[in-house]
Design a protein around this nucleic acid. Structure first.
Lengths: 153, 153
DNA sequence: GACAAGTTATTGCATAAGCAACTATACTAG
DNA sequence: CTAGTATAGTTGCTTATGCAATAACTTGTC
């Protein structure tokens, strides 16, 4: 089953399709989760991602550039994102004794509480979208494959 | 192997990790491809996505809302994206005889040529990132799993 | 110890994207 | 036919993001 190809170039290539599918799937899932988080928690997806990364980090804190890397944002974008989280009281900046250029971003108790609420929404969302559509084995397989794709370029 | 969990909520949940991995992988791949496309072609990833969808569509055209859906953008965002593509001459708007509310977005010869150039970059990129990291079987599996995730909510 | 080069975070600026309000057109029921 | 409702696309406005330039600091080398 091949679509009509008005041009010569292999736009129907298997890898091209796979990549397009990855983009589309991710965009749909992220959009929907974002809407639900926003509606139920006033918590944008980006905030949720930061809070989650911080909780998973030892001592609930990461350096600025580690946050940027973890959520795959630019350095400048992360600075402003953390600004907003800090204004909301969910996160705080702390100086780093060893390296005075660096600043830690640490989750606050309020951030922790917010993350709990957001996680409840997220888990419900995941149950509906991952739980029902993929089996445990399939999720594991998917995880393995994504990890292979995620290795440093 | 479990990370320290300062809080009670299951942030280490298997599905949560999988979702985070999906976001991260997608973001990394998209960012890198975007940079390469921009550098080699002056073609933002979003433009590439639109052009690709148009080429794959019958007669090289889609209605506005089909474009929006295909690339998972809002309606308003798609309008402006198509504006920019039209200004660049890669796409043109055409009226729809049956429904005077609708407008077609059609790829132009210039758009087709641009897409060819971008596809060359993309294929090279894919070879490096998909080709070397996943086998054909693995890519097929990934494709199947993503399709399951991509079904309408 | 001083200078060069690298690293960390922040800022100015430009752009892209979403939402909500609006216009124009199509469809449905009576 | 008309009224009401739904749909397609555009626009105003706000916000989020990236890039490039900058400032503060560290590291390595001589």
């Amino acid at each position: 089953m091949v679509t009509i190809q008005p041009s010569s170039c292999p736009s129907g290539d298997e890898k091209v399709q796979l990549f397009a599918l990855l983009l589309e799937t991710n965009a749909r899932l992220a959009r929907q989760l974002g809407l639900e988080l926003e509606a139920a928690c006033e918590t944008p997806l980006a905030w949720f991602e930061v809070l989650l990364q911080l909780r998973q980090a030892p001592e609930g804190r990461l350096k600025m550039n580690q946050v940027a890397d973890a959520i795959v944002h630019s350095s400048g974008g992360t600075t402003r994102l953390v600004d907003r989280l800090e204004i909301a009281g969910l996160v705080e900046r702390r100086s780093c004794p060893n390296d005075r250029r660096a600043t830690y971003v640490a989750i606050t108790p309020e951030g922790d509480a917010r993350l709990d609420r957001a996680l409840a929404v997220h888990l419900d969302y995941l149950e509906r979208h991952l739980g029902t559509r993929l089996s445990g084995d399939e999720r594991e397989t998917l995880s393995t494959l994504l990890e292979k794709l995620n290795t440093a370029s």
